[in-house]
């Protein structure tokens, strides 16, 4: 396996608030990393920094071994790193198929025919080909999130970031989104997933990472992580989240 992403000494402030306090992280190609932690621990912010939706005050990010220049490389980097948001953020004024084809056509210069062909394949893959001409508002939350995943995949990203992708969903719709994510993981996609779905972490993750107050507290393969958490804060968090 080869390293695809490296984060080095990352610090992020929101004004005076110090939300990331020195994050070091490496990600191997094909690895599925699940990040868990209490709200406000900085896990979403970390994802957003990797994608440069947030700026950071200190630290460096390497993509495929090359240092990312936040002033110059972000548009290219974002075509290589797909992002799935908690609230889907589908474009409401565009049909499902247009949601998928817009960025490849405008950013990568792909022809309309080619983009639509690819969109059909991906919609099929997430099980929503029959919704291609609907507007997003007509879809359920779970369907919208699956479209959002397909939209991100249209750019052929090397890494997919998931920022609490099931947190805004009704419980009965969580499953269908997790299934798509599992399918993606088993196809070899490199993924970072911020989630509260411990079942998903146990089953799919190669590595589970626990964050609290802007630092990485502990990380390990899921079996070890859930069976033998070493840090007190990790134990406390797991006890609370797994108790019911």
């Amino acid at each position: 396996m080869s390293e695809i992403l490296k984060v080095e000494g990352l610090h992020k402030y929101f004004g005076k608030l110090h939300v990331l306090r020195g994050i070091d992280l490496t990600l191997e190609k094909g690895e599925v990393l699940v990040i868990i932690g209490p709200s406000g621990s900085g896990k979403s912010t970390l994802l957003r920094c990797i994608n440069h939706l947030e700026d950071y005050q200190k630290g460096r990010i390497f993509f495929e071994g090359r240092l990312v220049n936040p002033k110059k490389d972000v548009n290219y980097l974002r075509t290589k790193i797909g992002m799935v948001f908690q609230h889907f953020n589908l474009f409401p004024h565009l049909k499902v198929i247009e949601n998928l084809t817009l960025a490849p056509m405008k950013v990568l210069g792909v022809s309309k025919e080619e983009a639509e062909k690819k969109a059909q394949v991906l919609l099929e893959r997430v099980g929503l080909l029959d919704k291609r001409d609907e507007y997003p508002i007509r879809l359920s939350g779970g369907q919208q999130q699956r479209v959002a995943i397909a939209r991100a995949l249209m750019m052929d990203p090397d890494i997919m970031l998931f920022d609490e992708p099931t947190s805004a969903l009704d419980p009965e719709l969580v499953y269908e989104v997790l299934e798509v994510m599992k399918d993606l993981a088993s196809s070899g996609m490199t993924m970072i997933v911020v989630t509260h779905e411990m079942g998903f972490a146990k089953e799919v993750a190669d590595r589970v990472m626990f964050m609290d107050s802007g630092v990485i507290v502990e990380q390990a393969p899921p079996d070890e992580f859930f069976a033998n958490p070493k840090n007190e804060r990790t134990k406390e968090f797991l006890k609370r989240i797994l108790s019911f």
Binding site: N51, L53, N75, Y76, F85, A103, K106, R151, A152
Partner: peptide
């Protein structure tokens, strides 16, 4: 989130404005 989604797909500020923000 609309602007962020557009930018996360690699669109420039101008493209995000033209295709996503201004039409809405």
């Amino acid at each position: 989130g609309q602007y962020e989604a557009a930018r996360s797909l690699g669109m420039t500020h101008g493209q995000a404005m033209r295709y996503i923000i201004l039409p809405q």
